[in-house]
Design a protein around this nucleic acid. Structure first.
Lengths: 110, 110
DNA sequence: ACGAGATACCTCTCCTGTCAAGGTATCTCG
DNA sequence: CGAGATACCTTGACAGGAGAGGTATCTCGT
C-alpha cells in the first residue's frame, strides 16, 4: 500500500459510491474490490470505511439492510440512493476539476 | 473558489514547493500565483499557508530570510532546499500514482 | 489630514476525516 | 481444538485545514 491516505483524503465516499453504483455490497467486499482494482496499492482502513458508512447513511446517500446469510458471518449490505447518485456525480466532476488544477499547480512544466 | 479543501488536502506543501522551485518567493506572492494559475478556482487560505511554511521549515524543506524592502510591508522570503527538492519529486511521483489509482476507483467505466 | 483599501505577516482555536488498537462472532480446515 | 479467514463495530488520538482575529506599512482619493 504505497499511497498515503492524505492524498486520497476526501475521496473515500466517492470510492465507496462508485462500488455501490454497480451493485449493493458490504464492507469487506468493497474493501477487497478496492484492493484488487488498485493493484494492491491502496486499501480503505476498516475504521475509515465504517465511519464513512455511518456518515453517508446519516447524509442519506446510502441505505443498509442485513443480508440473509444462513451460514458464516452476517453481512450488512449497502445500497446507493438517488441522493447518493447525485452526490457521486458531483464529486466525480469535482475530481476532474481538482485533477486539472493540481496538475497545473504542481507540475513545473506548465 | 469551487474546489473544496479535502480534495486538495495533503498537496499544500507540494504546491508551495512547485512555486519555490522556480524562484524564491513569499506568502502573498505564492498565493497570488496559485489563484492565477488555477484560474481563480482555488486558493490557499492564509492560515493554511503559514502553518505549512512553519512545518516545512522545521522539516528542512525550505529556509527563510527577510527581504530588504525599503518601503511597504516587509516580506519573508522562502527558499527551497535540496531536501525540499527531493521531497517535491517524491510527492510528484505519488501524485501521479494516486491519480491513476483514483481514476480507476471512482470512474465506473473501468 | 484622514479614512479606505491594498499589501504583508502571524496565531489561536475549532472541526473533520483518518486510523491504530481493541473488541465481537461465525465458519473452515488441518 | 486452534489458527486463520470472514465480517462487523467502537474508542481515542492525531494532523491538516481554515475561520476569526490581530499587527503594521504604504497609496490614493477626497
Amino acid at each position: 500500500m504505497s499511497i498515503t491516505a492524505d492524498l486520497i483524503r476526501g475521496h473515500t465516499e466517492t470510492i465507496i459510491l462508485a462500488q455501490l453504483l454497480q451493485h449493493d455490497s458490504y464492507g469487506y467486499e468493497i474493501n477487497k474490490a478496492v484492493r484488487q482494482i488498485s493493484g494492491n496499492r491502496f486499501e480503505l482502513k476498516e475504521a475509515t470505511l465504517y465511519t464513512a458508512f455511518k456518515r453517508m447513511e446519516e447524509a442519506g446517500q446510502i441505505t443498509s439492510y442485513w443480508g440473509g446469510e444462513l451460514t458464516g458471518a452476517r453481512r450488512r449490505y449497502y445500497c446507493i440512493t438517488d441522493a447518493g447518485r447525485k452526490y457521486y456525480n458531483a464529486q466525480l466532476a469535482l475530481w476532474e476539476e481538482a485533477k486539472s488544477i493540481l496538475d497545473k499547480l504542481i507540475e513545473t512544466e506548465g
